[in-house]
Amino acid sequence: PDNQQSPLSLTDVLTTQTLTPLLNDREICSALFPFLPEESERSPEEVRQVVQSPQFQQALATLSFALESGELGPLLTQLGLDPSAGTSVESFLRAIEQQARRREQERNNDAMDED
């Protein structure tokens, strides 16, 4: 398996460096409130602490591993992604990227329709 492409890890994507500007943005933090644990306080500070916890890091590693194992079809459907996005970390990230571009285009089209 040495000639196989080495798998990406989500821990290399959601690094502290990447996350800090997002977590300093109050609006982005507020949009993340629904995804905090139930008993968590709804505050930007809490979002920062939860995302910086070792348990979040562990979840990133676990999800990366699960994506590489390629058995996450149903989960991806729940996120509005094509089940084929669940074959590797890279295909998962590409699917999110495409989803964002598609939504952007739809918004632009809607805006043009309104004109």
Partner: peptide
């Protein structure tokens, strides 16, 4: 944490 990770991405 999956919904949180997905929304950050």
């Amino acid at each position: 944490f999956v919904p949180m990770i997905y929304n950050l991405l």
